[in-house]
């Protein structure tokens, strides 16, 4: 199966800081690929780089950046903006800041279709109402006339999802779509995404720091650290047989009712994600890694740990 999105050796630098250092990943049609890691590990920059939305000063290089067989790395801004919001759509963490507070939900939603497809206002309104219904919003007519501040966080995120779906995209990039929401609403939004994917065959690249979300919704997981994908595997394999010390550390941090006795400390990873200067060699995790040894400052091999399971580590960790 050819991948819907294929990223090979993506590099992003901001001045003297390397934010993404050779990340590769692929999303197949109808697949959910989760990108996990701590803040500052380059997850969001990766997604913005794919969409061509890097902030001023960001430089992107990649040996391949293909969307549905089309090389998008060389597209200019006009060609890219024709794709964005049309065949590839994105939703962000905080729907309050990504919706324009000065326009009604309806005018923001219809703009997408009118601009990309040249639809009439009436057609666009019909489509917007249909999609609001599809994402579980009752009384879509009323909501279309409302402003973002009149909606709750969960409703706003549903509006964002509906807006992203206006042009029937093939790929949806979701950057922490449920992090700002209550757990109950999070479950509803994730179910909604999973349902939409099943019905529409969407490919989803979901960025999150929450391993609970990953376990429940991903088909494939890539763990990112300091701008590199340090481990990538099918979901069951990653959780059943995590090989990279960073992945193991992340898993140990998650509080799970009944897992760690009260009063016993939770697992944690000491320190924070470092800033990586250009020309850095070796494993970026070595200063926080309990297994670090001399070889970790040399070149790090990308090892096969099983079918579709890759680990960027010098250790051959026991299962």
């Amino acid at each position: 199966m050819t991948a819907l999105l294929e990223v090979q050796d993506l590099r992003v630098t901001f001045g003297g800081t390397a934010a993404v250092r050779g990340a590769s990943l692929a999303v197949a049609k109808g697949e959910t690929h989760c990108l996990v890691g701590e803040s500052g590990c380059g997850k969001s920059v990766t997604s913005l780089a794919i969409m061509g939305l890097l902030a001023r000063g960001g430089r992107r290089e990649a040996s391949a950046l293909r969307f549905a067989g089309l090389e998008i790395g060389g597209l200019n801004e006009r060609e890219m903006s024709r794709l964005r919001g049309d065949r590839m759509a994105m939703i962000f963490q905080e729907p309050m800041t990504s919706l324009n507070p000065a326009y009604t939900v309806g005018s923001q939603m219809t703009e997408v279709l009118r601009r990309h497809r040249g639809a009439t206002r009436a057609q666009a309104v019909d489509r917007a109402a249909e999609l609001l219904g599809r994402v579980g919003i009752t009384a879509p007519g009323l909501r279309l006339g409302q402003f973002p501040h009149q909606l709750s966080g969960g409703l706003r995120q549903r509006v964002m999802i509906a807006m992203a779906l206006m042009c029937d995209p093939e790929l949806l990039i979701a950057d922490e779509p449920t992090t700002a929401l209550d757990v109950t609403v999070q479950a509803q939004i994730l179910r909604l995404l999973a349902g939409l994917q099943r019905d529409l065959g969407l490919g989803i690249l979901l960025i999150t720091h929450d391993l609970g979300v990953v376990a429940r919704i991903a088909d494939r997981v890539s763990v990112m650290y300091a701008g590199e994908v340090v481990e990538s595997a099918p979901t069951a394999e990653l959780f059943g047989n995590p090989r990279h010390p960073y992945t193991r550390g992340l898993l140990a941090c998650v509080p799970v009712p009944g897992k760690v006795k009260r009063g016993d400390p939770l697992g944690s990873i000491p320190g924070v994600v470092p800033r990586i200067p250009p020309g850095f060699r070796g494993c970026a995790f070595r200063d926080r890694c309990e297994y670090a040894h001399a070889e970790c400052s040399g070149p790090i091999p990308r090892q096969q740990a099983g079918p579709g399971h890759e680990v960027l580590c010098t250790l051959a960790l026991a299962a």
Binding site: V183, Q188, A194, L211, A215, R216, L238, V256, P257
Partner: peptide, 25 residues
């Protein structure tokens, strides 16, 4: 019970639970 059901533990294969609270906030 609904709050507890909506805690997503890192256990693959369980899917996202339907907490059954409906859409009314």
């Amino acid at each position: 019970q609904a709050l507890l059901a909506s805690v997503l533990t890192p256990e693959p294969g369980l899917g996202v639970p339907d907490v059954g609270l409906g859409d009314i906030m």
